[in-house]
Every structure is written in structure tokens, then in C-alpha cells.
Design a protein around this nucleic acid. Structure first.
Lengths: 249, 249
DNA sequence: CGCGTATTTGACCCATATCAATGACTGTGG
DNA sequence: CCACAGTCATTGATATGGGTCAAATACGCG
């Protein structure tokens, strides 16, 4: 993948219109004029190396971000100082919806690999959205949809076994990649086993063991952080196995 | 079963200004003029009896609702036709945020007891919010905050034991009641043990046993669906006991 | 190339799902 | 107002998924 980031300081006006992710960011039926206005408020791209943080927990909310390339994770430390991975951001994902309400970012956001992002000052976006109903609705829908999907996902996970949780998780990742035009069967997921465990409420040992079990069943092939899904139907069957235990026949 | 149209004749103009819940619905710094405009778009209240449904899953989204009295639950049936309790609505809660994105309601909503609600046509609310930044921001913040809180809650639950999950859940309920000016120590929760279990990803037996264990430790007293929290500090300690198992010393 | 970190694998056992049966409420019709 | 039916809650016995501890190996980064 070549460098999708335009040169800093060059014409930013057209950057959204030419972005390969525009279908994910922009309302589909915005006029070129309106899209131009939106493009004009986008800051110059942000670039992060692996392990660099984009945002610190509790920082004041001012910007939304869109992931252009790479991936990031959100870490939230609760009152008891236990740190959890609470979100994963892949190309095309918006970062910051969860900060609008509280007024500050609810977690630290760290790049899992070299990544680039667009930065949108929320103030301008908000002013623009009051004049453009289409944009306002797109934004509202995006916020609501993103958060709702996550909510459903989490509820599903609560009552599932480790086997089903992980399958459900991997299929979700695969689907994200597919929607963005990447392969759903083969991808690199830059999270460690421990990060995946934290995100799913499992230990890293269980994540590893479950992946090994999948491989033994020819459901997928994993090498480090490279995943090849071999039997998506089989994984879907596992992911949707109802309830916590298999009821014995 | 569903009868959302049931109406109670009432002057609607001032109903928001005089509502005991207005601090939860209305932006704090809205002028009387603006609040009047908002009050004018509120439909006549909806009244439901126990077990009546307010909304069927997949119905087209048109209204937001605010719970005035009573309580309701959201049931979501997934692809595998397993039904989960995915939300609980108490007085002051807004219903429908999760429908804005998809354009339809993601679950059936059923009254747990006799309840009354305000109905807000989203279209008018949206038009009004484009003219009133204060209202727009209040709405955005509310949506974002509500969904974010739920997200955090669910992530916390994922890695907790049944004991901690239930304590965490009950304290959350208590806090909701407290914020609305009710007692945090004594309340009635109209959910069955099975509903609570579904919401938390536990079986109804485990919910019951865990409640019994709490009672044995003098942490609370339960009789049917009446809850008396006796030792909130103790419950908080349980709720925040880190990780899934108590690490042995 | 070597150190620190991530991953894998194994042994053990506890929390909790499952299965089962009984008792307490709730509401309905005679 | 009582009897009955259906739901809900309680309690017990049992099996097992997966967390905990431990240690060896592989990997990636400086």
C-alpha cells in the first residue's frame, strides 16, 4: 500500500474527495461544494509509530479522528487501576465518538503499528453540521450505529464460551476488513494474545489454547499475528453456538 | 399486545417545564422560550401496563421516548433466535438512541410494570436542534454518554465473576435511582432473576445463589424484587475485586 | 547477537453451568 | 373467595470450562 497521506501543507481541499476511504467518512449524497467545505476543516494528517499514543486518557475532547492506515487500541484504566483493552480501531474507523458525551477521551489510544489518521476539529464539524442536515444525520447515525454495534457485540460475548467469543471476535474483524475492501480470509491483526484476552475478558493462555484448538480442527491457520480463516462457515457455527455450554444430547 | 397509541389528554405545552425529570431531559441553560418550543413537539404521554410492548424489534425509528414512571426492558433476538435482555430503562432514561443509526429499533421494548413515557418525534427534535446549538449538544452528549457508559459497563462485566458482576450491576441500579432523587439503598427492581441473568450473562440459578450469598454476608436483604442494600462499601469492594478469580495469597 | 517480551504447553482445581426437584407467588376462572 | 395452573425462585448434586500457577520456547527489537 503506497502512501495515502497527502503532503502536509499541500491542498487539503480535495483530500477527502480523493481518499480511498471516503465512502466510509462522507455522506454519500453530499454535493462537491459541501464536501469541499468538509474537506477544508480537516487538519493535516497525523502519523504515529508503533507504541506511540494518539490520545491520553482524560484529555479534553476536541477532535475526532479517522484511521487511514494502520490500527490502534484503546486502553481504559478504571478506578481500581485495572487496565482493559476497550476498543480496536481499524482503517476507516472513527475515533472519539465516546468522548463527545463526557467531554474528554475515556481511554488512552495507542498505535499498534505505524498508522496515519485524519484529524477533524469537532467544533468546526459541529458548526458545519448545523447548516448541513445531511452531514448532521450522517454523523448522528454513525455515532449511534458504531456504539450500538459495539453494545450488541458485548452483550453477545457475555454469555458465550471462550471458543465462541473468539470465533465471534475474529469474524467481526474479518467482516471489518471485508467492508473496507481487504481480504476477509487473510489478515494481520496487530494485537497480542494478551490484548485480545483483555478485550474479550479471557486470559492470554485461553486465547492461545483456543486458537490452537481451531487450528487442530482446520478452522484457521495462525502464525504469530497473521490469520488465515480456512472454514468461515465452521467458525460461524462455533460463534453462534447458543448459550454457554453445549447442552448434552 | 402493543398499544403505543393509548393517550392521556393533557395540556402538553408546559409539561416539560413542570416535569420532575426536566433536569434529566432538558439542557440546563435553555431559555423559557426555547424550552417552550421543545415542549410543543412532545406528543401526549404513552401509558403501558405490565407486559405491554412499547416497540417491536425492527420497527421503523420515528420517536425517542423518555421514561416518566415505571420501568422497561429491551429484548434483542439475534440471528440464532436466542433472546437476550439488552437494556433496562428506569425513570429519566431515554429510549431509542440505539435506533438512530440503524433506522429501526434494535429490540422489542416491554414494560416491566405500569409505566408512562413521553414521546418525542425525532424529526421535529432534529429540526429544532439544528436551530438550537444548546439542544443539539445536549442531545449529542446524551447519546454519546449513554452509550459510552453502557460500553464501559459491559467491558467491566466481561472479566468479572458472577459475584462481582451482580454487585456491579446492583450498584449501577442504585446509582441510577440516587441520581433521580430516589433512595439508593432501597428499591424495587421489576426484573426477574432470569432477566437479570440474561442481562449479565449468567443463569438464573447463579443469580439467585449469589443474592443468597450476599444476604448471608449481610451485604443486602432481598425479598422477591425488593432490594435493601445494607453494606454499600462491602458491595463496592466485591464489585471491584479485580480479575475473574480472587488471586490466592 | 542477546535480552526482554510474547507465546505455548501442562497440571490443577474452582466457579459456575447444567440437570433436577420442590416450594412460593401470581393471576385467572369458577 | 378459593382452587388450580403457570411462572418464578430456591436449593442440591454433578460436571466441566477456563482461570491460575509454572516453566520452557520462540520471537522481535535494539
Amino acid at each position: 500500500m503506497s502512501n495515502p497521506g497527502k503532503e502536509v501543507g499541500e491542498s487539503t481541499v480535495s483530500q477527502c474527495l480523493s481518499c480511498y476511504l471516503k465512502a466510509l467518512c462522507l455522506p454519500p449524497d453530499l454535493s462537491p461544494d459541501q464536501a469541499g467545505a468538509l474537506g477544508r476543516i480537516v487538519d493535516t494528517p497525523v502519523r504515529l509509530e508503533k507504541r506511540e499514543s494518539l490520545i491520553e486518557q482524560k484529555a479534553v475532547f476536541r477532535h475526532l479522528f479517522v484511521v487511514r492506515t494502520g490500527s490502534l487500541k484503546q486502553l481504559t484504566t478504571d478506578a481500581r487501576s485495572e487496565m482493559l483493552v476497550t476498543a480496536l480501531y481499524l482503517p476507516g474507523d472513527m475515533i472519539g465518538f465516546d468522548a463527545i458525551g463526557p467531554g474528554y477521551y475515556p481511554g488512552t489510544i495507542i498505535a499498534l503499528e505505524t498508522s496515519s489518521l485524519c484529524r477533524l476539529p469537532f467544533q468546526y464539524l459541529d458548526e458545519l453540521s448545523s447548516r448541513l442536515p445531511i452531514l448532521r444525520h450522517h454523523l448522528q447515525r454513525n455515532i449511534s450505529k458504531t456504539m450500538q454495534e459495539e453494545r450488541v457485540r458485548l452483550h453477545q460475548l457475555l454469555s458465550r464460551t471462550a471458543e465462541a467469543r473468539l470465533a465471534y471476535f475474529l469474524l467481526g474483524i474479518a467482516d471489518s476488513f471485508r467492508r473496507r475492501g481487504f481480504s476477509a480470509r487473510h489478515f494481520r491483526l496487530a494485537l497480542s494474545r494478551a490484548d485480545i484476552g483483555s478485550y474479550l475478558g479471557l486470559t492470554h493462555e485461553t486465547v492461545g489454547r483456543t486458537l490452537a484448538a481451531y487450528q487442530a480442527q482446520q478452522l484457521l491457520y495462525v502464525s504469530g499475528r497473521d490469520y488465515h480463516l480456512l472454514d468461515i462457515v465452521g467458525l460461524e457455527r462455533l460463534a453462534s453456538s447458543t448459550g454457554r455450554r453445549q447442552k448434552r444430547a
